[in-house]
């Protein structure tokens, strides 16, 4: 079982004013999709940058396929593929020209390079539009080429930093399917996201990061157990003047573990929520609020994050 292809060991990154990553450690097994889930500014990109030898760690090290990122950067770079959070492509060049160029940077050449470009275009589903300039592409298409570049040299491990940010649901679906398919063919993936559904769908094991720290790590079952049996209740409300008083009143109710407000939606953690709904609704009524909608969900990663940090994942 234990066959880690990547071991991050107590990684730190200190900037002048910010301690962006504060001792993150985790292992990734050969052939798994491992997700780092965390809100904006959690330190996901900084962690990936240290793993891809772009940033030197202030402290700690990582070993990837037997090579240290500190001392064997060149060897590490040959086994990893990187898909940055930004669309790191040349907009004036066509998709094919971009892939040809990046392939050369990975020392590919000749017929092999052409073949890899064709294969990755196929994976991106953009073979028929390969000769158009990237600047004319939609956001989703750019994201797909951004991924294709990371696959050119057939890496053992692929780092994907929020690869679905800012695109439509259809393109996102396509990308998630691609990740699953690549994984089925044996690719190990380190995936970062702030969408808990993506982490939940792709990965068995997930690390939750917040403020530069790994605050939880385990399988989804492990993580949801942290919340206990509590359900997540989302209640759309309006008309409440003193929301702080309402949140305080709600947390005092028996069965309610946490209460937070996300825009005009109350997000509650409650054990056996259905049994307590009437009390909750009357508390809202007492604060002269109106209930617009109610959703009750079984424990999920969102709840875990709320449980661990007292904040919603997307604020």
């Amino acid at each position: 079982m234990s066959n880690p292809i990547l071991q991050a060991q107590n990684l730190h990154k200190r900037y002048e004013k910010v301690h962006a990553v504060q001792g993150i450690s985790f292992d990734i097994q050969q052939g798994e999709i491992f997700s780092l889930l965390g809100p904006n500014g959690a330190g996901k990109t900084t962690t990936i940058s240290m793993l891809s030898c772009l940033l030197s760690a202030t402290e700690g090290d990582a070993v990837i396929d037997g090579h240290s990122v500190r001392t064997q950067a060149d060897a590490v770079k040959r086994v990893i593929g990187v898909v940055p959070q930004e669309i790191a492509l040349y907009p004036d060049l066509t998709a094919r020209e971009n892939l040809m160029f990046w392939g050369k940077m990975y020392s590919l050449s000749g017929a092999h390079l052409k073949q890899r470009v064709a294969e990755t275009l196929e994976i991106a589903g953009l073979s028929d539009r390969a000769n158009e300039k990237v600047e004319t592409y939609s956001g989703g298409m750019k994201r797909r080429i951004n991924i294709a570049v990371g696959l050119l040299h057939e890496p053992k491990v692929l780092f994907m930093d929020e690869p679905t940010v800012g695109i439509d649901p259809q393109s996102r679906r396509r990308i998630l399917d691609t990740v699953l398919e690549l994984n089925q063919r044996g690719l190990t993936v380190l995936y970062t996201t702030h969408y808990m559904e993506e982490a939940a769908e792709l990965s068995r094991r997930i690390g939750i990061v917040d403020h530069g720290k790994l605050i939880a790590l385990g399988t989804q079952d492990d993580l949801t157990k942290l919340v206990g049996e509590s359900d997540t209740v989302r209640i759309g409300i309006s008309g409440v003047n003193d929301t702080d008083a309402l949140l305080a009143a709600l947390t005092k109710l028996s069965g309610v573990d946490h209460a937070a407000l996300e825009e005009d939606e109350l997000v509650l953690q409650a054990t056996n929520a259905n049994a307590h709904l009437s009390q909750i609704i009357s508390a809202i009524g007492a604060a002269s609020g109106q209930v617009k909608s109610i959703k009750v969900a079984e424990p999920n990663l969102e709840a875990v994050f709320l449980h661990l940090t007292g904040r919603a994942l997307r604020d």
Partner: peptide, 10 residues
């Protein structure tokens, strides 16, 4: 980020 991408290649 194309510079960073360049620097992530060998």
């Amino acid at each position: 980020w194309t510079l960073q991408r360049l620097m992530s290649t060998p």
